[in-house]
Simulated scan of single mutants.
Amino acid sequence: MRDPILEGALRRVRDEKARDRGRRGRLRAATSAALAAAVLAGGLHLGRHSLPAHRILVATTGSTRMTTTITPADGWVRLHAAVDGIDPGERCTLVVTDSHGRRYVAGGWVAARREHTDLDGAALVDPADLATISVVTVDGRTLVTTTA
């Protein structure tokens, strides 16, 4: 014997479950599409605004040698210079020159010994505008220069 009331109630429950599954499926699809769009937009933004990896430049003038690591940042550069061959007591600055000829002091030190001196510095020079990096004494003598 079939109970029409029970069958009608069961049919309504099945229909409601099917509608709920459809709504959840559409919600999941919309959420997935929005997430994919956000990831794609973020990737495009990072791709356009990412900077190249660091560069290493080496220069020698007479007995003075400088190895410079340049790490680009957004609108400025970080520098690490390893300098050899400067007389002890010499007061020096690390000078960055941009493509327009403007000079920026990225750091300074007093040479303690003729061998290896490490210096970290920074300059507000756009990485694309970086022209040269020099070691200059406080009395204006350029000891070594490297072209970026």
Rank of each mutant, 00 (worst) to 15 (best):
V83W: 09
D74W: 11
H116T: 14
R91A: 15
S63C: 05
L79T: 10
D118I: 05
C92F: 07
P88Y: 10
A82F: 04
T69H: 07
L79G: 03
T68A: 06
S63T: 14
D84G: 03
R103N: 05
E90R: 14
H116Q: 10
T68R: 02
S99D: 15
R114W: 12
S99H: 09
D87G: 11
G101P: 04
P88K: 07
T64A: 13
A111N: 11
A73R: 15
V110S: 14
L94C: 04
R78L: 06
L94I: 08
R91D: 06
H80L: 14
P88M: 06
L94R: 03
I86C: 10
G75I: 05
G62T: 13
T67L: 09
S99R: 12
R91C: 06
R91M: 11
G85R: 12
I70F: 00
D84W: 13
R65P: 05
T68Y: 02
S63E: 15
A106D: 01
G89Q: 11
L119T: 07
S63H: 12
E115W: 07
I70S: 06
V96L: 02
T67C: 03
G89I: 12
G85M: 11
I70N: 02
R103K: 13
D118C: 05
V95H: 01
G101Q: 08
A112R: 15
G85P: 10
L94Y: 04
V96N: 01
A81N: 10
G107A: 09
G75T: 09
A82R: 06
T68S: 02
P88F: 08
D74Y: 12
A81V: 14
H80R: 13
W109Q: 08
M66F: 05
S63W: 10
T67M: 08
W76N: 00
W109T: 07
A111K: 09
S99V: 13
G101C: 03
M66R: 08
V95R: 00
H116I: 08
E90L: 07
T97K: 02
H80I: 06
A111R: 10
G89S: 11
W76G: 01
D74T: 09
I70K: 04
V96C: 04
G75Q: 07
A81E: 07
D120G: 02
T117Y: 02
C92V: 13
A112P: 08
D87Y: 05
H100A: 11
E90A: 14
V105L: 03
P72K: 10
W109S: 11
G75E: 06
T97H: 00
V95N: 01
H116A: 09
G121C: 02
R102E: 00
V95D: 00
G75D: 13
D98V: 03
S99T: 12
G107D: 08
S63N: 14
G108S: 13
W76R: 01
G108Q: 13
L119R: 10
V105A: 02
L119F: 12
T69N: 11
T64Y: 06
A106K: 01
R103A: 04
W109Y: 14
T93I: 05
R113T: 13
D84Q: 14
G85S: 13
D98H: 04
W109G: 09
D98C: 00
I86R: 09
